[in-house]
Design a protein around this nucleic acid. Structure first.
Lengths: 190, 190, 190, 190
DNA sequence: CATGAATGAGCGTTCATTCAT
DNA sequence: TATGAATGAACGCTCATTCAT
């Protein structure tokens, strides 16, 4: 994978995400990607060894992008719940504003394209979030349950809110956001 | 005269579910299914007009099976939380005991195979669950939020618990179940 | 090939001819034939070893039927041209009244289904027609050219008339028939 | 960069015509064509969208080629019969020298592959021949019958001669040609 | 580096034929 | 005898990938 032309890689990523929204991660073909990115099929193979490599690279990029956004404006010195709320809202923002990425990441867990190593890396990425939950437990603000279980529900609450919005076709507003956040917080708080 | 063999349909369903666990709903081929079911490829087309029909029939069967199990032993005259807990545990049981079905149903929402009408039918299926949540709200036991939002989190809490178990490799036990149920209940209760 | 149930064989032949008119001899399937004849696919194989056998049997039947009709009402003691005209008109009648058979016979010459032996048999069938032409030559009524060449044009003139009718969509009438017959006769007469 | 190879289209056409001679237009498969043309199956689909397109393109090419040859050396200022004879001989030459094309064109009229529009185009192609016959009628050299009927027999006489040659296995020579031409001419002349 | 023609394995599906009933 | 379910080879076509330019 040669990275000389960074813009071309981005072009390919954008094209791929756009197509995944339309036909799903399993439905895309290399030809579609190259057409959407306005390059030749062969060129794809200059930048990515094969389809699996391309998808995994995109996965990596999206994962990194997600983490960046999750912790944007988060200040460890702030009181716990303020930080927790910040991150929860960041998660929500990411899934709204980068809807295509979020859809892709979700589909990846069902996809045979994502290698186990990529999934392993994802685990490491959860570390900062795990520490957040640990802090909440140490400050006796969260239930004294398995950290990862609590984190699962925190992340899950955002996912469920998104599902709810898609299913009902409703637009996000403060009332809904607040309700969903309260459900999450009431669920995991001590 | 050889008659159409009803057990063969089940054979095909089992084979398909097994394969979906391995390669995802989008990755399965008719050849794989026939091999797994130990029948000829052509035989598949005696029982199902085409691949789409097969997948939709399986979807229908799994959906029906899920609903059956969700409400098993549920008694409307019982106090609300007893019934709610019963159904929550039924959902969990279904997703543990029919893990392959649950994975398939989840993937279907991303799949272009499932027709829109099938999705519509699914909506109708949620009606009894919606009524359950309504009852909780009427009895002032649940938060006064949108019924479907609450239901989303109820179902989501089961999904998240399963994800947690898969991710950590842990086996289900009463401690974990109780913790997860409490998170759900605390989240949506008034 | 068992012939116990003669009506069933005829049922199959009729069904086959009907289908050939619609989809051509190369387009028919054994399934289509059995459905059209309202019997099971397997039953076809009781009466005919395989598809090729069925088609060849039908070919044989149509050929025989054609010859029967060609010489109907022909009297060797009549003057030559009267007899010639009779047979020419019989040929025309056959191709009009048994249009489906004629279409099938025509297609057979392009079809890989018709075995070489069947084609050989067809040659023998031309013998009576050859003798007719010979007689015309002996009576100095026809050109002194190769007998088979003259016969070819006699048969050909009927075929061309039919083509003309199909192409133009015109219905047969005495004016057209007489014109076509005259062209044929003027062409081969001395 | 490899460019689309125009000779490859011809390679495919030749292979297809060769196969049609052997198994008929309805019997050919894309695999056979690609093998005969010594290219990969997929390559066929670079040059032709699908089988129907390939066959129709070949039809178009053969039709054009036929018309070119029919009128080669024809001079409208020549006396009618000289021109008529020229074209009759051209038709014969075409069907001898491009026997495979002629067989294909004949089969096309029975084939479901040839679209109706292609057939329509063929009609237009007969126009110059129709005008030829009209001229013969105006000069009182041909029978005063329907133009298309006369044309049918003119074309038919060539077809019948070819059939005769195939059937008898005889080689074309001046004696046979002259006899056949005389039959045609005597048939349609006034 | 970039192109898109070329490849052939593999897809969903249909077919002639066989076989258990 | 008659049935139609079962078979697996073969169909038209698409795909990820390679390669000549």
């Amino acid at each position: 994978m040669k990275l000389k032309d960074d813009t071309k890689v981005n072009l390919v990523f954008c094209a791929t995400l756009k197509l995944i929204l339309q036909v799903g991660v399993a439905g895309i073909t290399m030809r579609q990607i190259s057409r959407e990115a306005k390059i030749a099929t062969g060129t794809l193979y200059i930048y990515f060894k094969d389809k699996e490599t391309l998808i995994n690279a995109l996965f990596e990029k999206c994962r990194a992008s997600a983490i960046d956004i999750y912790f944007k404006g988060y200040n460890e010195t702030d009181p716990f719940e303020k930080g927790f709320n910040k991150i929860w809202n960041n998660m929500l923002s990411y899934r709204i504003e980068h809807f295509d990425q979020a859809v892709f990441l979700d589909q990846c867990y069902h996809s045979p394209f994502i290698t186990e190593t990529a999934k392993e890396m994802n685990k490491r990425v959860l570390q900062p979030l795990m520490r957040l939950i640990e802090r909440g437990k140490e400050e006796n603000l969260l239930k004294d349950e398995d950290t990862f279980l609590l984190l699962t529900f925190m992340i899950g609450s955002v996912h469920e809110l998104i599902k709810y919005l898609r299913y009902t076709g409703r637009k996000l507003n403060n009332v809904i956001t607040d309700a969903a956040y309260k459900i999450c917080w009431d669920g995991i708080k001590r």
